[in-house]
Simulated assay, not measured.
Amino acid sequence: MTVLLVPAYRPDGRLPALLAAVRRLDPALELLVVDDGSDPTPVFDACRSLGATVLHHGVNRGKGAALRTGLAHVALLHPDAAVVTADADGQHLATDVVRVAGSVQDGIVLGVRSFAGDDVPLRSRVGNRASALLVRAATGRALADTQTGLRGFAADLVPWLLTVRGDRFEYELRVLLEAARRGVPVEQVPIATVYLAGNSSSHFRAVRDSLRVYRPLALFLLSSLTAAAVDLVALVVLSALTGSLWLSVVGARLVSGTVNYSVNRRVVFRAGRSRRSLLGYVALAGSLLVANLALISGFTALGLGLLTAKLVTELLLVSVSFAVQRGAVFRRRRTVRTTVERAGLVTRG
């Protein structure tokens, strides 16, 4: 069984048109729409007439919150169902929705757009390219379309998806980041690139929502750069004072690690002080230190200078550090039960 989940805020006739086309192509797909605090509209009545279940938020809570509300509904009533998510603004073709649904076996399926053609807005080209580069820097994964709303998820991923934080557009990026940390496989399926009237139907606010989406990555990279600068200066000073590579690397890492932990806990991940996060960070720092020593020793043995070897090593390890800190060290634990209780599911009709 597969459920098509569509979060919708102030949708127009394109939403029931999409559902009707999907229903014709694949009558077995269950249809689920989450009204994210829209004004009263006959559009949702039209969706129900097509056999869709419609859930309602009393106020607008954001795309991420709407997706979790739908996922909580699926977890309660259809725990063995795969889920396909699609947007309500006419940017996904029914044929692509059905094809992505048919591709879900395990892990995640992304419907990826090519962003080719004169009708693709410049902000969409630039935004997706920037997002793809940041995701690759943080995870090592080359994903062609990190902003696509057409995604498929295997049934066993639904409980985990309910624990991913973010109430607005940042939720979808966080799913990809945490999927990389967990080793969840991602399949990429080409889909049509559709932009109507310059993407005017999108509720994505270019500045505010971009800041929400990229803030965790940008802050982490800035924190990492600051710590790397401290680490580099300390390494050079200690190397000159002691003449020992290993002692210099260890001492520099202790100084920079203290700075990095403090900034990441308070600013990047906004986690409270806890013994678990401290012990987790110490374990991570120890592992990265061993990797640091091994890589620097290897690179210097190959003839690289100390500074060059240090910079290359930090670039190689930054994505690992981000993924582990976000997903384990500073992770805010949330159970499926509390997520469902907070969803505030209300059905009408």
Rank of each mutant, 00 (worst) to 15 (best):
P11T: 12
R14L: 15
A17K: 11
A17Q: 12
V22Y: 08
V22E: 05
D26R: 15
V34M: 01
D36F: 08
D39R: 15
V43F: 11
L50H: 02
L50S: 01
G62S: 12
K63E: 03
L67M: 14
G70E: 00
P79H: 00
A86N: 02
A86P: 01
A86C: 10
V100H: 10
G102V: 06
Q105L: 09
I108P: 06
D118T: 09
G127V: 04
R129S: 13
S131L: 15
A138T: 11
T139A: 13
A142N: 13
A144F: 10
D145Y: 02
D145M: 03
A154W: 01
W160Y: 07
Y171S: 10
Y171M: 12
E172D: 10
E172P: 02
L173F: 07
L176Y: 03
Q188M: 10
P190G: 10
V194H: 11
S200M: 09
S202V: 04
R205F: 02
L211M: 13
V213Q: 03
L217G: 04
A218H: 02
A218L: 11
D231V: 02
L232C: 13
V233F: 05
A234V: 08
L235R: 07
V237Q: 07
L238P: 14
S244R: 13
S244Y: 10
V249T: 09
L254I: 12
V255A: 15
G257Q: 11
G257F: 00
N260Y: 01
Y261K: 04
V263D: 04
F269K: 09
S277N: 10
L279N: 10
A301C: 08
L304F: 15
L304C: 04
V318T: 10
R333V: 11
R337V: 15
T338G: 08
